[in-house]
Write a protein that binds this DNA or RNA. Structure first.
Length: 266
DNA sequence: CCTATAGCCTGACGGC
DNA sequence: TGCCGTCAGGCTATAG
């Protein structure tokens, strides 16, 4: 699930619930998700400390931990990760892989049934981004149209694959890449060099339309406008904009939905 | 640089 | 009901 808008919602949720509370205990029930940090070290960094701030870059959430050796807890949600803050022990999700127990009796659970995700510890967010070679984040970074154009310029691959490449642009996943292409009227298999000049502008506007709209809808598909593609994905029904038949095709190994009538290959 | 493929994990769903 | 294949909003390693 979690792409940029989803992780942004997780971030706001965490900010509204779990900040500035003392951590009394840490439970790691899936140590295989730890990346570059041991259970002991993670516990040592967290217990007795507080979460004080958060940052998001692409699909990564960084949570600031102050006191002792300062650093950031890094969470990546894979396909099925999410956060849950609760007091009632019965509300702790079944597949919680990391749990912070606050001294106020509440718990912050990192739930992730499929275990495709990562829990890490970084001293510097910038250092991590550089090490991973992540591209700019359309919200966290300043990304004017010309900069967006430069990101794609010189690439030869398919537009959808390129937009999902986290080293080009951080944050888009399968669903919102489809949505963006749908709204821009661009066929997902269009090669970057074949894009018309004004297509870059259309993609740029669609990018912000989609991520801002999705965040406004709390990244909940049920809240999205009916004229978006997302509520119709998988139905193989009619395009809500032009009435064309929705089709699906495999692009870069991912199921891709698009409208065959108004997203013409060029 | 680009593409295709397989693999990592687990749960939900549909067909038989 | 049970079994089995397929699929899933992510990412990496590998080979060509």
């Amino acid at each position: 699930m979690p792409e940029l808008p989803d992780v942004e919602i997780f971030k706001r949720y965490l900010n509204a619930t779990a900040l500035h509370k003392e951590i009394g205990g840490v439970e790691v029930s899936a140590p295989e998700l730890l990346e570059g940090v041991s259970v002991q070290r993670l516990r040592g960094r967290l217990v007795g400390r507080r979460l004080t701030a958060s940052r998001r870059h692409g699909k990564h959430l960084f949570v600031r931990v102050d006191g002792g050796e300062d650093g950031w807890l890094r969470l990546h949600f894979g396909m099925t990760g999410r956060l849950e803050y609760s007091k009632d022990a019965g509300k702790i999700p079944e597949h919680t892989r990391l749990r912070l127990d606050f001294t106020n009796g509440y718990h912050l659970a990192y739930d992730n049934p499929r275990k495709l995700g990562e829990i890490g510890w970084v001293k510097s967010v910038e250092g991590f981004l550089a090490e991973k070679g992540l591209g700019p984040d359309p919200l966290a970074d300043d990304l004017p149209l010309e900069a967006f154009r430069r990101l794609l310029a010189g690439r030869r691959g398919m537009v959808k694959t390129t937009l999902m490449n986290q080293e080009v642009l951080a944050g888009l996943g399968n669903v919102y890449a489809d949505e963006m292409l749908f709204q821009a009227g661009v066929h997902p298999e269009t090669k970057i060099p074949h894009l018309e000049n004004d297509a870059f502008e259309g993609l740029y506007h669609a990018l912000y339309q989609v991520i801002e709209g999705a965040i406004e809808a709390k990244a909940d598909p049920a809240n999205l406008p009916d004229d978006w593609l997302l509520p119709h994905r998988g139905e193989a029904g009619a395009c809500p904009r032009c009435g064309g038949m929705l089709k699906n095709v495999d692009v870069g190994g991912r199921t891709t939905w698009y409208c065959a009538r108004h997203q013409k290959r060029s």
